[in-house]
């Protein structure tokens, strides 16, 4: 039986350059859960991801984030990663001269104590994961994200997630800019890698990738709060009705609040 882990976010407020983006986000993600975070542009989905990962541009003004009861917000980004949090970037960053394999090994060995970092298992897993993503071994020799196509970058993010086997993975728009085949490959791989020891949150605008990921729950963020939560069918409903429908609902509920 795998361990049960929790990522608890309570009343999180965050701002960028003095502008408040997150206005009290509360949610809990548990091991084994696979959730989708949807919402219109600018609603704060990515901000939530980056604020949890500790991006220096985001200032937390109120609230808490606890990973297995430990205060994430007091940790540096690398400490958060070592605590088990993974952020899949929407726009992965290029690092020239550093091969993907060297980078993956560096990251992997940071995550494991020296006696647990096993290069044989690392290699075997890597080969398996490359296969999932339809990537060739020669891909590993290329400098990290440099000259990668959009699809290669997104696949590489998933590959990193697979290598680091985090307790919680937040994937920021792993489908943006991808063609249908790439969406399928990324979506299916994310679903395959998801496991009972891991909580996964996929941020997306569209329902398309969710067909492959098959989330247990769907949250909808509007204007810095989670406006609506529901089952997988909520994603389809959103696809038909659009986000305005949620916004109207949100306005109504706020108006009726005491």
């Amino acid at each position: 039986m795998s361990e049960e882990h929790t990522l608890v976010v309570k009343g999180l407020h965050a701002s960028v350059a003095g502008k408040e983006i997150l206005k009290g986000v509360t949610l809990t993600l548990r091991s084994g859960e696979l959730v989708a975070m949807m919402g219109p542009n600018g609603s704060g989905k990515s901000t939530l991801a980056y604020a949890l990962a500790g991006h220096p541009k985001y200032t937390i003004t109120a609230g808490e984030a606890l990973l297995d009861g430990k205060n994430l917000l007091a940790m540096t980004p690398d400490q958060r990663a070592r605590a088990g949090l993974f952020l899949g970037f929407q726009y992965p960053v290029e690092v020239s001269g550093v091969s993907l394999s060297k980078f993956l090994w560096t990251a992997y060995s940071q995550m494991h104590p020296p006696d647990e970092a096993d290069s044989d298992r690392f290699g075997a897993d890597l080969t398996k994961h490359l296969g999932y993503l339809g990537l060739d071994n020669s891909f590993l020799k290329r400098p990290l994200n440099e000259g990668f196509s959009g699809g290669e970058k997104k696949r590489t993010e998933v590959l990193q997630m697979a290598t680091l086997s985090p307790r919680f993975a937040i994937l920021d728009e792993p489908d943006s800019g991808l063609d249908i085949d790439a969406i399928r490959s990324v979506g299916e791989t994310v679903a395959k890698l998801h496991n009972p020891g891991m909580g996964t949150m996929v941020i997306t605008h569209y329902q398309r990738i969710l067909k492959f990921i098959r989330p247990d729950r769907v949250h909808v963020m509007v204007d810095g709060v989670i406006a609506l939560s529901g089952g997988r069918e909520l994603a389809e409903e959103l696809e038909q009705k659009g986000y305005d429908w949620v916004k109207v609902g949100l306005a109504a509920s706020q108006a009726s609040a005491p």
């Binding site: 980004p77 690398d78 958060r80 990663a81 952020l87 970037f89 690092v95 550093v98 940071q110 400098p143």
Partner: peptide
């Protein structure tokens, strides 16, 4: 930030960038 989010300490992140 990108490299730190993968568990590298800040100094190791800079080192990796310089070696690259």
């Amino acid at each position: 930030f990108y490299l730190m989010s993968r568990g590298l300490k800040e100094s190791d992140a800079i080192h990796l960038i310089l070696m690259g």
